[in-house]
Design a protein around this nucleic acid. Structure first.
Lengths: 283, 283
DNA sequence: TAGTGGTCTAGACCACGGC
DNA sequence: CCGTGGTCTAGACCACTAT
């Protein structure tokens, strides 16, 4: 992986890093091995130019690579430079069960006090559904769908925030035109349950994604930090007659957040189990 | 967001993109709006140079930005070029319940037939635990811990693969030295339950991360694709006396995989619910 | 072989922010 | 002020692969 050696220049075999990727690999290894601690300054471009004998642009690209990977960041000003980024190892864990208080449903105590991020507001628009949302809603891709977009977070820790797009199934919007209006997002679930007279069931599907520039800006993501994406599917009814009424697309920093679920035992995995025929590992 | 206009050059206000970021933004918008479909060729560097009047390096950076974001990729050779990447919108969904067959435990039918990736083998080493693993194991960071590292996946679809590091608590390794040996990973759980005489309980914590170059290579990740990371914590006992015996760190492509869980209602959220005091939305 | 992107050197100029 | 990284132009050379 690290092209630190076995590198040719003018037919002569070199053992030192002389390319941007090789220099980046040297520094990356030093960071991984904690020779360079968070907050420590990396060599400046001038230092890289003299120690490795490369051009300025090459030194720049080595440092830029580490920034893109989220390993380093720039501190501007005199005495600044490129430093090892302190990566939060302590993530905010969201236990994904549904709770309820005077305000309505919420998903766990860590977010009970979250509010709309100042300066942002819920917007309600009709928009063609992306493929994955359309698939979950069970409608043709590109169908125009009512979506409520919102950003909220912890009022006391502004970096803890998430973007939520609530895509409402066309049938439910036709039946409940109030959903186009000022009903809060939390209120949406109550309105639907009042109308249906039975409970919504939720399933969450979690994946990772690269943020768009707009998402990175809104969520204050440094470069190199991916999105943690939770797709929450709200369903009425059970089994084959279950109808998807809403899909929420919730995006948050993959570095600051994690979500936690208990894992259930099914079928033959229920305790006590019979001994396995072999110890072959299948997962 | 898109610096397509309001750009100054020599004191003259321009309305066309003349920087790498601005050109990238134009192309990004065209991809997002489906003017450029997956497989379509983006303008070549020569075309960008003439249409925008920029230097070759600038055109290069515009295209490189899109590749880094995972929106485009390079097809080499004559007639090739930079094309819009086909992003798999159909992810492999792993329903995270625990099942069991003759082989032992496994997590859902989609992975029941998975095997070790050809050419890879399980390695067993002692390694200092990273901070987040140490935290979950309840041991001081940097403690040397036995870890079993493995890569497995779908034999018929080699791109569907995952890296699994199984970090075993020092106490359980001391009690069960066999875990250092050739017991399969799936066998680990059986050995622990036989020894303890009671069932393991699992919790999974999901987050997103940027792959290291080594992880990207092993998992065949194109640039711009983040990791989906599942931390599975295995526990013996309940409540305050629960002891963590193992932490699995499972990494897979965030583009090809998602994990799915049912969401439980707790406390006041159990049906039937009382009406909410307001419709204020807290999540 | 031709056309694509990728890397490098060399040098000019700009933006930022602590000193 | 001045050292830091960031962007740009300009040009040389290399790597890949369909044709």
């Amino acid at each position: 992986m690290s092209p630190k050696s076995d590198y040719r220049q003018g037919g002569e075999r070199m053992t030192v890093a002389r390319t941007a990727d090789a220099i980046a690999a040297v520094l990356r290894d030093q960071i991984r091995d904690r020779e360079l601690q968070p907050g420590d300054q990396l060599p400046t471009m001038d230092q890289l130019m003299t120690t490795y004998g490369v051009a300025r642009a090459t030194a720049l690209r080595a440092l830029a690579t580490l920034k893109a990977e989220g390993l380093a960041e720039y501190r501007a000003g005199r005495g600044g430079g490129t430093v090892v980024r302190a990566r939060s190892t302590q993530r905010m864990v969201r236990s994904r069960g549904i709770e309820r208080d005077d305000m309505g449903y919420y998903s766990g105590p860590t977010v009970q006090h979250w509010r709309s991020v100042p300066g942002s507001a819920t917007t309600t628009v009709d928009r063609p559904a992306p493929d994955d949302i359309a698939e979950l809603l069970g409608i043709p891709p590109g169908t125009s769908v009512l979506v409520r977009e919102r950003m909220n977070g912890d009022p006391e820790r502004p970096e803890l925030r998430q973007l939520t797009d609530s895509w409402l199934h066309p049938d439910i919007v036709a039946a409940l035109p109030i959903l186009r209006g000022s009903t809060g997002l939390g209120g949406t679930y109550d309105r639907i349950e009042e109308w249906a007279g039975r409970p919504i069931a939720w399933t969450e599907e979690i994946t990772a994604a690269t943020p768009s520039p707009a998402e990175a800006e809104a969520l204050l993501l440094p470069t190199g930090v991916p999105l943690l994406r939770v797709l929450r599917v709200s369903t009425l009814g059970r089994g084959k007659r279950a109808a998807v009424v809403e899909v929420q697309d919730i995006r948050m920093s993959g570095e600051l957040f994690s979500v936690r679920y208990p894992v259930q035992r099914h079928g033959a995995a229920r305790w006590p189990v019979r001994p396995a025929g072999t110890d072959f590992y299948t997962d």
